[in-house]
Structure formats: structure tokens, C-alpha cells
């Protein structure tokens, strides 16, 4: 359904060119829940915004983003707007993304008004959706009266109202406490078999939502695995480190600091923090296929031969 080939996003900055996303390949099949996990600075938000072409002008995007057979990067701005309106719903990460001067219900109805539907039907549909996600009583409230979890659900309703073919949600649980996070999880589980791409740093949330997991580190995908395999037995040393730093899994930190995107190490970008690195890691490892997973690490190169 969505196929991304060799996507590169560069930003020009005072300190040099930053390759925030560096040669990313993946595909999302219809009905799948594909979750990107990664820490801040891994380029995952930039990736999501590049897919729907919402990046600021100082970014250059190259590669191919093929959605239903059409390369989104080649569309005109007008056609792209249509895609964003009807086909791909992008749900931004910030719960301040709601206009503070507009009541929640009307705001959620905006995409439908854009589509030119009749008023009565729009309102009925939006209130049904709000009801479905448990915030029907908040139809006529202003955003500041809603809690963070409710605002996140309102954003979800706004995205869903136009019945998109695919939803891209960016950090839906950011800044929420456990109870509110649980409400967002429930909302996502209610989505049924819609095609979903979620960007998150919240591993427990990913575990509950994902069919397949992709791990990003410093602008590159280091592992793509089915969710169950990923949480039982991650392949890449970074994935292992990430899971082990969860409080429930021993809270063992990964040593060292994440390198800055301007000044990345040659070869494998994780090698300076990796306990298993060898001389070979000075060379860029390819994305290798291991038991239905993809992993970018030399550790698995020998098993193939």
C-alpha cells in the first residue's frame, strides 16, 4: 500500500548539512499496523512529515514514496492536498495542534467541510465518532478544557472523520500519564483493521498496538521485525539495549551518548556504544534478512553464508 524507497531528508543548517533521514526503505501493507520506534533525534518525526510533505522549505527530500501506485513526491501541491484530505490522515504529535478558538466538534468536522458534505450529515458523523471514542459530551467545548488524552482522541477523530485509507500518527502518547495513555491505547485498538503507521518512543505503547516494528537510530532503520519477535527476541544490539533500559526489564542503560546528526561516526552508527562491535563495523552494514526480519548489523552476516 505504502512503499518508501531510499528516502533521504536533508536540512541545511549553520553547522552543516544534517541528514535527518538517510536512505530509508520500507513498505506498509494494507490493514497493517506498522510502528516506528526510536528516540528523540533519530529522525522518525521528520520521516513521517516527509511522507505527507509537510516539512519546512529548508528541507530537501529525495527518493520515492509510492502510495497506491502514485509517487507522492512528484505530485503537485494541489493534488497532495487532496491526498492529505482523503487518503492519508496525518495526526501531529503536539496536542496543542488544535485551534484554541474553535470548539472541538466543529474542528473535527473541518476535513469534511472541505470535502463539501452536507452540514447535518457532517455533524451526525462527527458526534458519532466522538461518542465512539468516549468524548461525545465534549462536542461543544474549547480545546483547553480537554485533558491531554481527550485532545489526542479529538485529533484522532479529526483524522478519521474523512475515512482515510491510511493513518499516520506521530507520538500519540507524548506527555500523557499512564491512565491517559491507556485511553489512547484503547482508542487505537478500536480502529479495527485500518492501515496505521505510528511513530513513537513509547515501547509499551508500541507493544500493544503494533503488528510490525521498525527501529530507527540516527536517521537509519536498524531493524524491522514482527512485533512479537521484536519484544521477545530483538536482533539488533540497539534494539536489545532499548528494551533492556525499560524499568520492567532491568533498566540497564546503553552506554555513552547518542552522536550528533551533524557528526556521525563512519560505518555502523551504533558501533561506539555497542558491546559487540568488531573491526568490521567501521564499514556500513547492509540490511540483512534473518528469519522474516530485517536487521542492519554485521553480527548476522555470517549466518547467511
Amino acid at each position: 500500500m505504502l512503499k518508501v524507497e531510499n528516502l533521504v531528508v536533508r536540512f541545511k543548517s549553520r553547522v552543516g548539512v544534517v541528514r535527518a533521514v538517510d536512505g530509508v526503505n520500507f513498505d506498509v501493507v494494507s490493514g497493517e499496523r506498522f510502528v516506528f520506534v526510536g528516540e528523540s533525534g533519530s529522525g522518525k518525526t521528520v520521516l513521517a512529515m516527509a511522507l505527507v510533505r509537510l516539512l519546512p522549505n529548508n528541507a530537501t527530500v529525495t527518493g520515492r514514496v509510492i502510495f497506491d501506485g502514485v509517487d507522492l513526491l512528484k505530485l503537485s501541491e494541489k493534488e497532495m492536498r487532496k491526498v492529505r484530505n482523503c487518503k492519508i490522515a496525518y495526526i501531529p504529535q503536539n496536542q496543542a495542534s488544535l485551534n484554541p478558538l474553535m470548539k472541538v466538534g466543529y474542528q473535527c468536522a473541518e476535513p469534511l467541510v472541505e470535502q463539501g458534505l452536507e452540514r447535518g450529515r457532517i455533524m451526525r458523523k462527527v458526534s458519532e465518532l466522538l461518542e465512539f471514542f468516549g468524548i461525545g459530551h465534549r462536542f461543544k467545548d474549547y480545546p483547553h478544557k480537554l485533558s491531554g488524552g481527550m485532545r489526542q482522541r479529538a485529533l484522532l477523530v479529526m483524522g478519521l472523520s474523512r475515512e482515510p485509507e491510511m493513518i499516520i500518527a506521530d507520538e500519540p502518547t507524548k506527555g500523557l500519564d499512564a491512565v491517559k495513555r491507556e485511553q489512547v491505547v484503547e482508542a487505537f485498538q478500536k480502529l479495527g483493521r485500518r492501515t496505521l503507521m505510528v511513530i513513537t518512543h513509547d515501547l509499551p505503547f508500541a507493544e500493544k498496538v503494533a503488528d510490525r516494528i521498525a527501529v530507527m537510530y540516527c536517521g537509519k532503520i536498524v531493524e524491522i521485525s514482527p512485533a512479537r519477535e521484536f519484544f521477545d527476541c530483538p536482533l539488533h544490539p540497539y534494539s536489545k539495549g532499548l528494551l533492556e533500559s525499560l524499568p520492567e526489564r532491568g533498566m540497564n542503560p546503553i552506554k555513552g551518548f547518542q552522536p550528533s546528526l551533524v557528526n556521525l561516526p563512519e560505518g555502523c552508527r551504533f558501533r561506539e556504544r555497542c558491546d559487540l562491535s568488531t573491526a568490521r563495523c567501521a564499514e556500513e552494514p547492509p540490511l540483512l534478512e534473518v528469519d522474516g526480519s530485517l536487521v542492519r548489523c554485521w553480527l548476522y552476516a555470517d549466518e547467511m553464508c
Binding site: 532499548l242 525499560l246 524499568p247 540497564n252 546503553i254
Partner: peptide, 11 residues
């Protein structure tokens, strides 16, 4: 903070 950073700070 991210989980890996959280782990390092709490440790």
C-alpha cells in the same frame, strides 16, 4: 526523556 536516557539517569 527517552527510555535509554531515563535508565542512565535513574541509575
Amino acid at each position: 526523556l527517552d527510555v535509554s536516557v531515563q535508565a542512565a539517569i535513574v541509575r
